[in-house]
Nucleic acid binder design. Structure first.
Lengths: 144, 144
DNA sequence: TTAGTTGCAAACAATTTGCACGTTG
DNA sequence: CAACGTGCAAATTGTTTGCAACTAA
Protein backbone atom coordinates (compact mmCIF):
# COMPACT_ATOMS: atom_id res chain seq x y z
CA UNK A 1 0.00 0.00 0.00
CA UNK A 2 1.30 3.03 -0.71
CA UNK A 3 3.07 6.11 -0.87
CA UNK A 4 2.37 7.32 -4.35
CA UNK A 5 4.68 10.28 -4.19
CA UNK A 6 7.44 8.71 -6.24
CA UNK A 7 5.00 7.80 -8.97
CA UNK A 8 3.74 11.33 -9.17
CA UNK A 9 7.25 12.67 -9.16
CA UNK A 10 7.89 10.80 -12.36
CA UNK A 11 4.78 12.08 -14.02
CA UNK A 12 5.05 15.68 -12.91
CA UNK A 13 8.74 16.28 -13.34
CA UNK A 14 9.74 18.88 -15.91
CA UNK A 15 6.23 20.22 -15.88
CA UNK A 16 6.92 22.81 -13.24
CA UNK A 17 4.31 21.18 -11.07
CA UNK A 18 5.12 20.05 -7.56
CA UNK A 19 4.80 16.80 -5.78
CA UNK A 20 3.03 17.46 -2.54
CA UNK A 21 1.99 15.08 0.15
CA UNK A 22 -1.66 15.99 -0.34
CA UNK A 23 -1.47 14.94 -3.97
CA UNK A 24 0.20 11.71 -2.99
CA UNK A 25 -2.45 11.15 -0.35
CA UNK A 26 -5.31 11.59 -2.78
CA UNK A 27 -3.76 9.21 -5.29
CA UNK A 28 -3.16 6.70 -2.48
CA UNK A 29 -6.78 6.91 -1.46
CA UNK A 30 -7.97 6.39 -5.01
CA UNK A 31 -5.81 3.32 -5.31
CA UNK A 32 -6.86 1.88 -1.98
CA UNK A 33 -10.55 2.61 -2.26
CA UNK A 34 -12.58 -0.09 -3.92
CA UNK A 35 -15.46 1.11 -6.02
CA UNK A 36 -15.91 4.59 -7.34
CA UNK A 37 -15.70 7.29 -4.71
CA UNK A 38 -16.96 10.79 -5.36
CA UNK A 39 -15.23 13.98 -4.30
CA UNK A 40 -17.07 14.20 -1.00
CA UNK A 41 -16.16 10.64 -0.05
CA UNK A 42 -12.54 11.29 -0.87
CA UNK A 43 -12.60 14.38 1.30
CA UNK A 44 -13.89 12.43 4.30
CA UNK A 45 -11.28 9.73 3.88
CA UNK A 46 -8.53 12.26 3.28
CA UNK A 47 -9.39 14.21 6.43
CA UNK A 48 -8.67 11.17 8.53
CA UNK A 49 -5.05 11.32 7.49
CA UNK A 50 -4.72 15.05 6.96
CA UNK A 51 -7.45 17.03 8.72
CA UNK A 52 -6.53 20.27 7.04
CA UNK A 53 -7.23 19.16 3.50
CA UNK A 54 -10.04 20.92 1.66
CA UNK A 55 -12.57 20.03 -0.98
CA UNK A 56 -10.96 22.51 -3.35
CA UNK A 57 -7.72 20.55 -3.17
CA UNK A 58 -9.58 17.33 -3.84
CA UNK A 59 -11.07 18.78 -7.00
CA UNK A 60 -7.87 20.44 -8.12
CA UNK A 61 -5.92 17.25 -7.60
CA UNK A 62 -8.51 15.14 -9.35
CA UNK A 63 -8.27 17.45 -12.35
CA UNK A 64 -4.50 17.06 -12.32
CA UNK A 65 -4.66 13.29 -11.98
CA UNK A 66 -7.14 13.12 -14.82
CA UNK A 67 -4.92 15.17 -17.05
CA UNK A 68 -1.90 13.02 -16.25
CA UNK A 69 -3.87 9.85 -16.79
CA UNK A 70 -3.88 8.47 -13.25
CA UNK A 71 -7.60 8.60 -12.75
CA UNK A 72 -10.78 8.37 -14.75
CA UNK A 73 -13.93 10.28 -14.12
CA UNK A 74 -17.21 8.41 -14.46
CA UNK A 75 -20.80 9.53 -14.67
CA UNK A 76 -22.73 6.72 -13.10
CA UNK A 77 -26.22 8.01 -13.59
CA UNK A 78 -26.02 10.53 -10.80
CA UNK A 79 -25.53 14.24 -11.10
CA UNK A 80 -22.08 14.22 -9.56
CA UNK A 81 -18.93 12.54 -10.77
CA UNK A 82 -17.19 9.41 -9.49
CA UNK A 83 -13.51 8.69 -9.72
CA UNK A 84 -11.36 5.63 -10.12
CA UNK A 85 -7.63 5.02 -10.26
CA UNK A 86 -6.66 3.75 -13.68
CA UNK A 87 -5.67 0.10 -13.44
CA UNK A 88 -4.48 -2.51 -15.89
CA UNK A 89 -7.73 -3.87 -17.24
CA UNK A 90 -10.17 -1.52 -18.84
CA UNK A 91 -13.73 -2.16 -17.81
CA UNK A 92 -17.23 -0.73 -17.90
CA UNK A 93 -19.91 -0.06 -15.37
CA UNK A 94 -23.44 -1.19 -14.81
CA UNK A 95 -25.59 0.59 -12.22
CA UNK A 96 -28.58 -1.14 -10.68
CA UNK A 97 -31.57 1.19 -10.70
CA UNK A 98 -32.96 -0.35 -7.59
CA UNK A 99 -30.13 -1.01 -5.17
CA UNK A 100 -27.60 1.33 -6.73
CA UNK A 101 -24.88 -1.27 -6.84
CA UNK A 102 -22.24 -0.76 -9.50
CA UNK A 103 -21.04 -3.86 -11.32
CA UNK A 104 -17.80 -3.71 -13.26
CA UNK A 105 -17.51 -5.82 -16.36
CA UNK A 106 -14.96 -6.39 -19.05
CA UNK A 107 -15.25 -7.62 -22.58
CA UNK A 108 -12.94 -8.43 -25.41
CA UNK A 109 -15.39 -6.62 -27.62
CA UNK A 110 -14.01 -3.35 -26.33
CA UNK A 111 -10.85 -3.56 -28.41
CA UNK A 112 -12.82 -4.42 -31.48
CA UNK A 113 -15.16 -1.53 -30.89
CA UNK A 114 -12.24 0.86 -30.57
CA UNK A 115 -10.68 -0.48 -33.74
CA UNK A 116 -13.92 -0.12 -35.62
CA UNK A 117 -14.35 3.45 -34.48
CA UNK A 118 -10.81 4.39 -35.47
CA UNK A 119 -11.15 2.81 -38.88
CA UNK A 120 -14.58 4.09 -39.75
CA UNK A 121 -14.13 7.64 -38.64
CA UNK A 122 -10.35 8.03 -38.67
CA UNK A 123 -10.34 9.54 -35.20
CA UNK A 124 -7.51 9.66 -32.71
CA UNK A 125 -9.32 7.86 -29.90
CA UNK A 126 -8.20 8.79 -26.42
CA UNK A 127 -10.91 7.58 -24.14
CA UNK A 128 -14.06 5.50 -24.19
CA UNK A 129 -16.65 5.09 -21.47
CA UNK A 130 -19.48 2.63 -21.34
CA UNK A 131 -22.21 2.90 -18.80
CA UNK A 132 -25.16 0.56 -18.60
CA UNK A 133 -28.11 0.48 -16.24
CA UNK A 134 -31.06 -1.73 -15.40
CA UNK A 135 -31.70 -4.22 -12.63
CA UNK A 136 -29.06 -6.48 -11.16
CA UNK A 137 -29.56 -10.23 -10.86
CA UNK A 138 -30.51 -9.85 -7.24
CA UNK A 139 -33.08 -7.09 -7.64
CA UNK A 140 -34.77 -8.36 -10.78
CA UNK A 141 -35.97 -11.46 -8.96
CA UNK A 142 -38.09 -9.55 -6.55
CA UNK A 143 -39.87 -7.59 -9.28
CA UNK A 144 -39.32 -3.89 -9.71
CA UNK B 1 -43.36 18.11 -38.65
CA UNK B 2 -45.51 16.75 -36.12
CA UNK B 3 -47.76 17.24 -33.34
CA UNK B 4 -46.62 14.76 -30.77
CA UNK B 5 -49.61 15.14 -28.54
CA UNK B 6 -51.32 11.94 -29.63
CA UNK B 7 -48.16 9.97 -29.02
CA UNK B 8 -47.86 11.30 -25.54
CA UNK B 9 -51.51 10.62 -24.90
CA UNK B 10 -50.86 6.99 -25.50
CA UNK B 11 -47.94 6.86 -23.16
CA UNK B 12 -49.39 8.93 -20.37
CA UNK B 13 -52.90 7.60 -20.26
CA UNK B 14 -53.93 5.77 -17.12
CA UNK B 15 -51.03 7.33 -15.31
CA UNK B 16 -52.98 10.30 -14.07
CA UNK B 17 -50.59 12.56 -15.95
CA UNK B 18 -51.87 15.08 -18.44
CA UNK B 19 -51.11 15.75 -22.03
CA UNK B 20 -50.38 19.44 -22.40
CA UNK B 21 -49.34 21.65 -25.28
CA UNK B 22 -46.03 22.35 -23.68
CA UNK B 23 -45.17 18.70 -23.33
CA UNK B 24 -46.10 18.05 -26.93
CA UNK B 25 -44.07 21.05 -28.01
CA UNK B 26 -40.95 19.90 -26.22
CA UNK B 27 -41.19 16.42 -27.69
CA UNK B 28 -41.71 17.93 -31.14
CA UNK B 29 -38.60 20.03 -30.74
CA UNK B 30 -36.55 17.07 -29.66
CA UNK B 31 -37.66 15.14 -32.70
CA UNK B 32 -37.04 17.99 -35.10
CA UNK B 33 -33.74 19.11 -33.72
CA UNK B 34 -30.72 17.39 -35.17
CA UNK B 35 -27.85 16.81 -32.80
CA UNK B 36 -28.07 16.87 -29.05
CA UNK B 37 -29.61 20.03 -27.65
CA UNK B 38 -29.22 20.95 -24.01
CA UNK B 39 -31.98 22.38 -21.82
CA UNK B 40 -31.05 25.99 -22.56
CA UNK B 41 -31.16 25.42 -26.30
CA UNK B 42 -34.54 23.76 -26.02
CA UNK B 43 -35.81 26.71 -24.03
CA UNK B 44 -34.75 29.16 -26.73
CA UNK B 45 -36.38 27.11 -29.46
CA UNK B 46 -39.50 26.54 -27.40
CA UNK B 47 -39.94 30.24 -26.68
CA UNK B 48 -40.29 30.93 -30.38
CA UNK B 49 -43.47 28.92 -30.42
CA UNK B 50 -44.66 29.53 -26.90
CA UNK B 51 -43.05 32.59 -25.32
CA UNK B 52 -44.39 31.84 -21.88
CA UNK B 53 -42.61 28.54 -21.41
CA UNK B 54 -40.04 28.33 -18.65
CA UNK B 55 -36.83 26.46 -18.03
CA UNK B 56 -38.46 24.63 -15.14
CA UNK B 57 -41.01 23.16 -17.51
CA UNK B 58 -38.26 22.11 -19.88
CA UNK B 59 -36.52 20.20 -17.09
CA UNK B 60 -39.72 18.74 -15.70
CA UNK B 61 -40.81 17.59 -19.12
CA UNK B 62 -37.42 16.14 -19.95
CA UNK B 63 -37.59 14.12 -16.75
CA UNK B 64 -41.01 12.85 -17.75
CA UNK B 65 -39.93 12.01 -21.29
CA UNK B 66 -36.91 10.18 -19.95
CA UNK B 67 -39.04 8.15 -17.60
CA UNK B 68 -41.46 7.23 -20.36
CA UNK B 69 -38.65 6.36 -22.73
CA UNK B 70 -39.06 9.09 -25.32
CA UNK B 71 -35.72 10.75 -24.77
CA UNK B 72 -32.24 9.86 -23.69
CA UNK B 73 -29.95 12.00 -21.65
CA UNK B 74 -26.29 12.11 -22.64
CA UNK B 75 -23.21 13.37 -20.90
CA UNK B 76 -20.97 14.48 -23.70
CA UNK B 77 -17.96 15.53 -21.70
CA UNK B 78 -19.47 18.77 -20.53
CA UNK B 79 -20.89 19.59 -17.15
CA UNK B 80 -24.44 19.87 -18.39
CA UNK B 81 -26.64 17.27 -20.03
CA UNK B 82 -27.69 16.89 -23.64
CA UNK B 83 -30.89 15.31 -24.84
CA UNK B 84 -31.97 13.32 -27.82
CA UNK B 85 -35.28 11.83 -28.97
CA UNK B 86 -35.07 8.08 -29.00
CA UNK B 87 -35.02 6.87 -32.57
CA UNK B 88 -34.80 3.55 -34.33
CA UNK B 89 -31.08 2.90 -34.48
CA UNK B 90 -29.09 2.90 -31.29
CA UNK B 91 -25.82 4.72 -31.62
CA UNK B 92 -22.94 6.11 -29.61
CA UNK B 93 -21.16 9.41 -29.43
CA UNK B 94 -17.64 10.62 -29.95
CA UNK B 95 -16.69 14.14 -28.89
CA UNK B 96 -13.70 15.88 -30.44
CA UNK B 97 -11.57 17.46 -27.73
CA UNK B 98 -10.48 20.21 -30.02
CA UNK B 99 -13.42 21.35 -32.09
CA UNK B 100 -16.15 19.93 -29.88
CA UNK B 101 -17.91 18.20 -32.74
CA UNK B 102 -19.99 15.18 -31.81
CA UNK B 103 -19.85 12.22 -34.17
CA UNK B 104 -22.51 9.57 -33.93
CA UNK B 105 -21.52 6.02 -34.73
CA UNK B 106 -23.17 2.65 -34.74
CA UNK B 107 -21.79 -0.83 -34.49
CA UNK B 108 -23.10 -4.33 -34.65
CA UNK B 109 -20.88 -5.05 -31.70
CA UNK B 110 -23.39 -3.29 -29.49
CA UNK B 111 -25.84 -6.15 -29.57
CA UNK B 112 -23.12 -8.61 -28.80
CA UNK B 113 -21.94 -6.52 -25.92
CA UNK B 114 -25.43 -6.34 -24.47
CA UNK B 115 -25.85 -10.06 -24.83
CA UNK B 116 -22.56 -10.73 -23.13
CA UNK B 117 -23.46 -8.48 -20.25
CA UNK B 118 -26.83 -10.11 -19.75
CA UNK B 119 -25.35 -13.59 -19.84
CA UNK B 120 -22.38 -12.96 -17.64
CA UNK B 121 -24.07 -10.99 -14.93
CA UNK B 122 -27.70 -12.00 -15.36
CA UNK B 123 -28.87 -8.41 -15.31
CA UNK B 124 -32.02 -6.94 -16.73
CA UNK B 125 -30.38 -4.44 -19.04
CA UNK B 126 -32.40 -1.32 -19.73
CA UNK B 127 -29.97 1.16 -21.12
CA UNK B 128 -26.41 1.41 -22.34
CA UNK B 129 -24.43 4.51 -23.18
CA UNK B 130 -21.09 4.71 -24.87
CA UNK B 131 -19.17 7.92 -25.02
CA UNK B 132 -15.75 8.25 -26.61
CA UNK B 133 -13.46 11.22 -26.97
CA UNK B 134 -10.23 12.17 -28.68
CA UNK B 135 -9.49 14.10 -31.86
CA UNK B 136 -11.60 13.94 -34.99
CA UNK B 137 -10.11 13.21 -38.39
CA UNK B 138 -10.07 16.87 -39.23
CA UNK B 139 -8.39 18.12 -36.07
CA UNK B 140 -5.78 15.40 -35.70
CA UNK B 141 -4.15 16.43 -38.95
CA UNK B 142 -3.21 19.85 -37.73
CA UNK B 143 -1.55 18.55 -34.59
CA UNK B 144 -3.02 19.14 -31.17
C1' DT C 1 13.86 32.66 -2.75
C1' DT C 2 10.03 32.18 -5.66
C1' DA C 3 6.80 30.00 -8.28
C1' DG C 4 3.53 26.53 -7.52
C1' DT C 5 -0.05 24.90 -3.89
C1' DT C 6 -3.64 25.31 -0.52
C1' DG C 7 -7.65 26.80 2.55
C1' DC C 8 -11.36 29.59 2.80
C1' DA C 9 -15.20 31.74 1.27
C1' DA C 10 -17.44 33.51 -2.46
C1' DA C 11 -18.81 32.70 -7.21
C1' DC C 12 -20.76 29.77 -10.71
C1' DA C 13 -23.39 26.57 -13.42
C1' DA C 14 -26.90 23.23 -13.82
C1' DT C 15 -30.84 21.55 -12.01
C1' DT C 16 -34.69 21.23 -8.61
C1' DT C 17 -38.42 22.87 -5.76
C1' DG C 18 -42.26 25.66 -3.07
C1' DC C 19 -46.02 28.05 -3.90
C1' DA C 20 -49.76 30.65 -6.01
C1' DC C 21 -52.07 30.63 -10.19
C1' DG C 22 -53.54 28.38 -14.61
C1' DT C 23 -55.25 24.38 -17.27
C1' DT C 24 -56.86 19.69 -18.35
C1' DG C 25 -60.01 16.01 -18.11
C1' DC D 1 -64.06 21.43 -9.89
C1' DA D 2 -60.43 18.60 -8.49
C1' DA D 3 -56.09 17.30 -9.57
C1' DC D 4 -52.35 18.07 -12.22
C1' DG D 5 -49.17 21.46 -14.68
C1' DT D 6 -46.63 25.81 -14.90
C1' DG D 7 -44.04 30.29 -14.05
C1' DC D 8 -41.29 32.57 -11.05
C1' DA D 9 -37.90 33.07 -7.88
C1' DA D 10 -35.44 31.02 -4.38
C1' DA D 11 -32.99 26.92 -2.96
C1' DT D 12 -29.80 23.04 -3.81
C1' DT D 13 -26.07 20.59 -5.59
C1' DG D 14 -21.69 20.01 -7.58
C1' DT D 15 -17.69 22.31 -8.96
C1' DT D 16 -14.56 26.27 -9.80
C1' DT D 17 -11.99 30.39 -8.60
C1' DG D 18 -9.70 34.77 -6.32
C1' DC D 19 -6.69 35.76 -3.00
C1' DA D 20 -3.61 35.77 0.92
C1' DA D 21 -0.89 32.56 3.44
C1' DC D 22 2.07 28.51 2.86
C1' DT D 23 5.63 25.26 1.15
C1' DA D 24 8.44 22.53 -2.05
C1' DA D 25 12.47 22.79 -4.86
Amino acid sequence: MGNSIHVLKDALKDSGRRVTHKRGLILDLLRETPGHPDAETLLIKAKKRDPRISLATIYRTLALLKKTGFVEEHRLGETHAHYEAVGETPHFHFTCRKCGRVIEFESGLLDRLKLELKRKHRVDLREIHIHASGFCAHCREKGD
